[in-house]
Design a protein around this nucleic acid. Structure first.
Lengths: 164, 164
DNA sequence: ATAGGAGTTCGAGTGCGCTCGAACGCAAGA
DNA sequence: TCTTGCGTTCGAGCGCACTCGAACTCCTAT
């Protein structure tokens, strides 16, 4: 089995991916469209699949400003939810809090910072692509181990045949 | 632009990926084949793209036993390197140290633990696939923002049209 | 009216995976 | 020979992103 074979198998697995995550994610995004009433922190957290603690943490970190209902409870409207979807997606793809704070600062500074924001996004896209490549390699390695019955940590099932 | 379009674009980007990482990785793996002399910790670290500190840390953590040259210096032979390639690839794809320690313990316990090891690998494969799906969504989100000139953190460039 | 549950703030704690510093030892080139 | 630089051990420290606990407040349903 060559490395190319491994990669093909890995990419094939990729195409078989019809798991629950995208569907779920899209449904949650779709919910944002017909969002007329603002949400409580628990509802927002549920939708975004993070904890209320984390939402407060993001707010403390300056990533978002959230309206308050009379009584002081947080109130997440559609705009807040859209920003949070963006934030959580960036976090999920490994953008550090620091960078998100910087990005948000740029947004606050107005249109003049669009080029820098664009740079950040382009750089982050590269980061994601790199991660995708590395993950695909790891998937190939894992598939290979599985194919050889998950043995011996590389004493046997190794990458000896892997050559460009 | 629909979600499907976004996904298509994201997957297209995926196919354009001819970056330095896989090539580099494969070359480094290929080097392992004609590895007759054992390596120093610095050489091993270089090849694996981790720090010597990290290699010592993995050893302390019980993930690998490394030969010593006369004089006490660590000496990484082909088998050690193969195990380390496996370990670093699993780490890179997010397998926790704990799980790797467990896996290695199972390996030490012999062939009887093959089924459990296989279970771990299957589960990890699922984890990788989930990560790939999430990353692909994040890539789509990033591409979309880039396409709309990286503006306003979701106040404008949002996912309002994402349906189905 | 009151009990329960969900919300609030604040600071402190946790878990993970390194990463570093100090004090020391061997080893190979000028 | 000597020096300089990579190697060693050990424990401690760090950075990140949450995560939690305490003490309190507020809405809601009985």
């Amino acid at each position: 089995m060559t490395t190319d074979d491994l990669m093909s198998k890995a990419l094939a697995s990729l195409n078989e991916m019809d798991g629950p995550i995208p569907v779920e994610a899209i449904h949650r995004l779709a919910d944002l469209n017909d969002l007329d009433d603002p949400l409580t922190i628990a509802q927002a957290a549920d939708l975004l699949d993070v904890s209320p603690h984390t939402l407060r943490y993001y707010e403390r970190a300056g990533l978002i400003v959230v309206d308050r209902a009379p009584g002081g409870h947080r109130s997440y409207d559609a705009a807040a939810m859209r920003r949070l979807v963006f934030l959580t997606r960036m976090r999920l793809s490994g953008m550090p809090m620091r960078d998100l704070q910087h990005y948000v600062r740029l947004v606050d500074e107005g249109e003049a910072t669009v080029p820098e924001r664009l740079d950040m996004l382009l750089e982050h896209r590269d980061t994601i692509c790199r991660q995708l490549r590395e993950l695909t390699l790891s998937l190939a390695a894992t598939e290979y181990k599985i194919a050889t019955y998950g043995g011996r940590t590389g004493d046997d099932a190794d990458f000896a045949e892997a050559g460009s």
